[in-house]
Design a protein around this nucleic acid. Sequence first.
RNA 1: GUGGCUGUAGCUCAGUUGGCAGAGCACCGGGUUGUGGUCCCGGGUGUCGUGGGUUCAAAUCCCAUCAGUCACCCCA
Length: 419
Amino acid sequence: MTGFTAPKGTFDTLPPDSAAFLAVRDALTAPLRRAGYGYVETPVFEDTALFARGVGESTDVVSKEMYTFTDRGGRSLTLRPELTAGLMRAFIEHKLYAGQLPVKLYAVGSNFRYERPQAGRYRHFTQVDMEALGVDDPALDAEVVALGVEGFRKLGLTNFELQLTSLGDANCRPQYREKLQEFLAGLDLDEETRRRAAINPLRVLDDKRPEVAAQLTDAPLMVDHLCDGCQQHYDEVREHLRNLGVHWIETPKLVRGLDYYTKTTYEFVHNGLGAQSAIGGGGRYDGLSKELGGPDVSGIGYAVGIDRTLLALRAEGLIGEPPAKVRAFVVPLGDEARRRGMRLLTELRDEDVPADFAFGGKSLKGAMKAADRSGARYAIVLGERDLAEGTAQLKDLTTAEQRAVPLTDLARTVKELLS
RNA sequence: GUGGCUGUAGCUCAGUUGGCAGAGCACCGGGUUGUGGUCCCGGGUGUCGUGGGUUCAAAUCCCAUCAGUCACCCCA
């Protein structure tokens, strides 16, 4: 077998299922457009160092999951493992911070991580990413979180929850981190976990293995060690969320795998997906802009997985039949009719009537079958007899009623019938 | 990266103690040359994931490998 297949951990999205993909993408971005977020397109690859510094050297994403390569000019480039770093790079490079703040941006696109594939986890996946940059205002945190919830709600999802916590900032996290490390040092952990505790102790809190989780019940929590500023910020965020009617679950052990998060941190978790249950997640990041050579401004945003959201919709039985591709279908009989029929096809499309044609020299029976399967409401049968009279047979495929219509009026007639 | 399970037609799957590759659905053609959905007739569309091994004989047993899947890890 020498045939090609999609690379490991990747998949194709084909019609008719791809219609649901587009619908999800549009539903998740519509709330952003209504809230004044502007679309950004950035390269699929960036300087490797951008991710190393932006996402964090200690993260799994950077240390073992990146698709990195050297181009012919000797540059080290990496296929983006997430969208935030590229968005921040563009924000800084084009000095968007010099204008009115916050700068509200969103992006949609492919991401790549070299991971072991699993349900809901792929090496190529698509995210919607949004960022509100340059302002540190709890009300903005609330807007961002609420927009994420709205996207899922508009799709009809109900079996998901918003998990929320605060990760503190440069004032309080270092002390807490030390306290946590002391606590972890007293536990019975395997070597791999010990190493994780040394590099990023917060990550250990998230461990799902029962023998580890059991030891963590009395672990010190970041939310109990917030400095006054972070505490006030978190209180205000929650007050705004209550005001907006957004429900959340306090999740003090929630940790994000990317290093840049501070203060408000959250995840959208769906309950019908198995292990890969996060359909979206994000938070505030105080130091990212500065870390990447920009001004010392804060930002907040989230990323939502389109593929996982699609799985969530499927889990809730919310994916219906895709709409018909065309509304009219032209069936020609004979060579002269084929030529006139092709022009008719163009006339229909010029009237904004999605239309298709019986290609492939099908028999009348086969052509009618094709018309039926296309989902079209109307079939237009065009034979020599009709042609001689300057008409075509317009057949309503739902009622089987058929009548002759002058060819010159046909496209307009179909358009009117459909409107 | 670690561990478990699974790979047979486009899809869902059956295939007995090793003995000529099957079903349903889908698809294609036809039912006297101008009408679809229902019905009838016909058609298998396949490197049994791949490569080795055992055997007179392998979809079936063994090894390797690739892929999928589930959990860990990680995360969207």
